[in-house]
C-alpha cells in the first residue's frame, strides 16, 4: 500500500529525475553570427556639387557591399542596419529583376534564420554606401559595422574589388 514514506520517496525520485532531465536538455544559446567574404565595388567620392531643388545632386556617390551572413546559433537574428566611416549614410537595399528591368528598393530589416545563411550579392540584397567620404579604390579595405537586433554590432573588414571574388 502507499505509505507516507513511500509517497515521499517517490516524489523525491520524480523530482530528481526532472532536475536531471532539465540539465541534460540542450539550452537555447541564441544566434551565433559570423560574416564571410565581404567585398565592395570601387567608387569615386562625390564632386561637392551644391544642393539643387532640395536634393543632394552630384555629391552622393555610391557603392555597394556584399557578403554572406551565417548564423550557427539555434535562434534567428535580424540585421537592422550598418554604419561605416567611408559613407555619410549606409542603407540595406535589394535589387529585384522584373524581366530585364532592374528595380532597387530599401529594405528595413533582413532576418537571418537559425542554422541558416543569407547571401548579399549582386542583383540581390546589398548594403548601399551613400555619399562616399573618400574614393574606394580596388585593393583597399575599410570597416563596415553591421547592426543586429540580438547580436549587437559586428565589425567586418571589407575589400574593394571590381567583381565578385
Amino acid at each position: 500500500m502507499f505509505s507516507l514514506r513511500n509517497i515521499r520517496s517517490r516524489s523525491i525520485t520524480v523530482l530528481l529525475g526532472l532536475i536531471i532531465a532539465a540539465c541534460a536538455a540542450p539550452a537555447a544559446t541564441g544566434p551565433r553570427i559570423r560574416v564571410q567574404d565581404a567585398w565592395a565595388r570601387p567608387g569615386a567620392m562625390g564632386m561637392g556639387h551644391e544642393m539643387e531643388q532640395g536634393m543632394s545632386h552630384g555629391r552622393e556617390s555610391t557603392s555597394a557591399v556584399y557578403f554572406v551572413v551565417v548564423n550557427d546559433g539555434d535562434q534567428p537574428d535580424v540585421l537592422t542596419g550598418a554604419v561605416s566611416d567611408v559613407a555619410e549614410r549606409v542603407e540595406l537595399h535589394e535589387t529585384r529583376m522584373e524581366g530585364d528591368v532592374a528595380k532597387m528598393q530599401p529594405v528595413p530589416r533582413v532576418e537571418i534564420p537559425a542554422q541558416g545563411r543569407v547571401e548579399f550579392k549582386p542583383r540581390g540584397l546589398h548594403v548601399m554606401l551613400i555619399g562616399l567620404k573618400r574614393d574606394l579604390q580596388v585593393g583597399e579595405t575599410f570597416t563596415l559595422t553591421l547592426q543586429f537586433e540580438r547580436s549587437g554590432e559586428i565589425p567586418v573588414r571589407v575589400s574593394v574589388k571590381e567583381m565578385a571574388p
Binding site: 531643388q53 536634393m55 543632394s56 552622393e60 549614410r89 542603407e91 530585364d100 532597387m104 530599401p106 551613400i130
Partner: peptide, 25 residues
C-alpha cells in the same frame, strides 16, 4: 532617409535622393 517616398523634385530635404529603375542591357 532610406524610405521610398511619393516625392517630387519640388519636395525639399537634405536626405531626399533618387534611384533609377532601368533596363539591364
Amino acid at each position: 532617409n532610406g524610405t521610398p517616398a511619393a516625392a517630387t523634385p519640388e519636395t525639399s530635404g537634405s536626405e531626399l535622393t533618387y534611384f533609377i529603375n532601368h533596363t539591364d542591357r
